[in-house]
């Protein structure tokens, strides 16, 4: 059974639309990621994912791997 979960990660280091796009494309194509929306203004990435395949930590790591700084929001809210 698929166990969906959403999380809003902080992402630092994006300065333009192309940064946003490359994150959306790359992270959005990871297994278990259902939906991603990246906001340049708010410096966040909102993700809906399958908890069986990804975790907020693994997603943070994937974003860091791309060369951006990413962290879990304060008082991590996985709902």
């Amino acid at each position: 059974k698929v166990n969906l979960c959403s999380v809003a990660l902080k992402v630092e280091g994006m300065t333009c639309g192309s940064c946003v796009q490359s994150i959306e494309q790359r992270i959005g194509s990871l297994p278990g990621v259902i939906h991603i929306r990246v906001s340049l203004e708010q410096k966040t990435a909102t993700l809906i994912f399958d908890q069986g395949q990804q975790s907020p930590e693994s997603l943070t790591e994937a974003i860091e791997d791309m060369g951006f700084e990413s962290s879990l929001p304060d008082g991590s809210t996985t709902t």
Binding site: G13, T15, C16, S18, G67, E69
Partner: peptide, 14 residues
């Protein structure tokens, strides 16, 4: 690379 964010990302990766 299209902006400083891109080159910044490359910098951090390297």
């Amino acid at each position: 690379m299209t902006c400083e964010g891109c080159s910044g990302a490359v910098t951090r990766i390297l």
